[in-house]
Write a protein that binds this DNA or RNA. Structure first.
Lengths: 217, 217
DNA sequence: TAAATAAGCAAACGATTGCTTGGTTATTTC
DNA sequence: GAAATAACCAAGCAATCGTTTGCTTATTTA
């Protein structure tokens, strides 16, 4: 070894700083969180943060990276135990995603809330990280049995948009991540009835009078 | 008259300030937009803004109100011409919502992007305005012919979340608001095929017994 | 034409911002 | 036990922030 890893010597408060930052970024937003706010919550002086991070932007990138790591791990773990059915797998991924987003940790929430375009220097990094994570949903949606003309990209983006909006309205007790994931998938899933019966009710693509949903009976 | 309306005398640059503010709030975010930025873009001096608005927060509230007004009018107008079919009506509302959100004007975008909790003083005002607007979607979703156990609140919140996420990924030319609205609705609409043939393909998603979508009639 | 007022300028206030710099302490390593 | 270094303190810098205050100008109204 000798010239091996630096390996956190002694108590390293880097993690504490990250925890506090994630929480405050979610509570007040990045721009409205001052480095002094973070320092105070960690029990340090403002300048001491710069021993661990080069800049405030750098601190956000670190929180973002940790958030992507955590939510990715969570989804991957859920998928390993999810079996083979494509809809069940997608639902499991959504449940893991929502659990991270609505849970006590703030890291995933930062990933969702942060607009990469607000950080022109790190924009590519942030977009790349998020894309790598969301690739999981691309694959999951590609595996779904869907009518041939379905736009799977739009389906995926709908689902991601719906999930990432939950922090705005979610109330603990009234719902659960698992329950929401189930309802989300239930609302998107098309019952693939045998023998293409479903196409009968499909709409005319160009937006004009669409076949009615319940017309008979 | 004598004691009648104040009635904008001469050129009133209030509207210009609002336009500029809406644009910059969307571009850089509220906290990262300084009053000096806004003043410069209007050709005024920083202090002059305070002749028209009492504070920066006040300015945001004004933009927000204008945004709610515009998107509400747009949706209402679309609904007047939309006929009676519940799905067609919902799709028309979505198209109007998306057109405002993805169009050139920034007002609606501010409404979507602004987190009321970031403005504790005006939080109730902002939430109230947004709720009044979104009530339109509550009514539209209530009118849908859906399986009895469907959670219409979740359906509505899914749709709103999906729509409000579009500014993140929308690219002009590749999609249109109308096209997206159609795909969104298409993905949510369940083809009510005759005689419940669909149940065959239903699966129990997460180990919980999921009530089937289409069971009766 | 005189008084009133709408609209904005000019200049600065105090507070807060992200960050730097030089020194200090405690722990390791040799 | 000496040298090195990880981790932080103490103090402050320059820039920017939202906002205020007093004054000027141009347009209305009477």
């Amino acid at each position: 070894m000798t010239a091996l890893a630096p390996k956190a010597r002694r108590n390293n408060r880097r993690e504490l700083i990250l925890d506090v930052s994630a929480q405050q970024f979610v509570e007040k937003g990045f721009a409205s969180t001052s480095t002094r706010d973070i320092a105070k919550a960690t029990g340090m002086l403002p300048g001491s943060l710069y021993y661990h991070f080069a800049s405030k932007d750098d601190l956000l990138v670190a929180v973002f990276e940790e958030g992507v790591q955590r939510i990715s791990d969570s989804v991957d773990t859920a998928l390993e135990a999810a079996g083979a059915d494509p809809w069940v797998r997608l639902q499991a991924a959504c449940e893991a995603h929502l659990a991270m987003l609505l849970g006590t940790s703030s890291y995933a929430h930062v990933v969702i809330r942060t607009l990469p375009s607000d950080f022109s220097d790190a924009e590519k990094t942030l977009v790349g990280l998020r894309r790598q994570y969301e690739a999981r949903f691309t694959r999951l949606c590609d595996a779904l049995p869907l009518p041939p003309q379905t736009d799977r990209s739009v389906l995926r983006l709908m689902l991601i948009g719906a999930m990432n909006h939950t922090p705005v309205w979610y109330r603990e007790g009234r719902d659960t991540p698992a329950g929401l994931a189930r309802k989300f998938i239930e609302n998107l899933r098309v019952p693939l009835v045998g023998a293409g019966a479903s196409e009968a009710a499909r709409t005319d693509a160009s937006g004009e009078p669409v076949s009615r949903r319940i017309e008979d009976e």
